[in-house]
Design a protein around this nucleic acid. Structure first.
Lengths: 143, 143
DNA sequence: TTCTTATCTAGAACAATTCTAATCTGTTGA
DNA sequence: TCAACAGATTAGAATTGTTCTAGATAAGAA
């Protein structure tokens, strides 16, 4: 059951992160964390909230996504210069990115190994190693 | 001398790519390809051109960077959701990215090995594997 | 030359994101 | 319980990087 994130846990997570559990944060938190790992854009989450009958402004969605990211509840994924993705999976892992559709998929961090990394340049410290496997979605085939 | 890109070669490269060697393209091409490998943003290249006394509009800089990229004279590097970088090194390689300063450095492609990549998902083909080593620039130390 | 087109340009338009100033709401402590 | 404050939310304006547009210009062919 360790993968489940029970309903009420969103409240606890916000409190632990020092974030006031407001109506909006709770609603967005549930959309994000109930259910499995997700990759969302601000725009998409905003739409999803509307559809779920939760009224939050786009500005709040942006604020919340950034606050969650600071609190390590989310991770930002940079794969596309047009939009920013946020990932609910904050464990060590990498990504497939399908360029034409814009869809993201996780790759387990333990599966991939990156060897031969040079030392970090002087005056810098390593923050993270990102591996992005870029894919071309092939047009639907008829066998 | 195989690393040099003699002055007149820019002309040849444009011709080979099927691009008319206009004044603007030649000027930008020289800024980009004379000298070593470079990472530029549109904005930065535009400024550089102005300073070099070449008058090109920002729109032309964008057009040219994209045309060069299509012609494989440049490569686009996605590391920062705020701006797009273009890399004059089009051979197989990866990047260091210093997050606070926004500077990019090449990592030889032969040095790094990525192992354990899962098979590409159904209906997709592999386009490229990008490794981005994100660094934190440490504030200047006084020893 | 002259003609045909590709190219260039300034500025408008656009999309994603951030900012602003006013309003609202959680929380705290009397 | 309630007042009061700090923090959160909001609509809309502002900003930023990039693309589009329509008219002016220049490269290459005849």
């Amino acid at each position: 059951m360790s993968q489940d994130r029970p309903y009420s846990q969103t409240l606890t997570r916000l409190r632990d992160a020092g974030l006031r559990p407001t109506r909006q944060r709770l609603a967005l938190g549930r959309l994000l964390f109930d259910g499995g790992d997700r990759h969302v854009t601000a725009e998409a989450l905003h739409e999803e909230a509307q559809k779920a009958g939760v009224s939050v402004s786009l500005a709040t969605v942006y604020n919340t996504l950034h606050q969650f990211t600071e609190a390590q509840l989310l991770r930002e994924v940079v794969v596309d210069s047009a939009r920013t993705y946020f990932d609910t999976n904050v464990s060590d892992h990498h990504h497939f990115f399908v360029e034409n559709s814009g869809s993201l998929m996780d790759i387990d961090g333990e599966k991939i190994a990156v060897t031969g990394l040079p030392a970090t340049p002087d005056g810098t410290t390593l923050a993270r190693v990102d591996v992005i496997v870029r894919l071309q979605g092939t047009p639907s085939r008829q066998p």
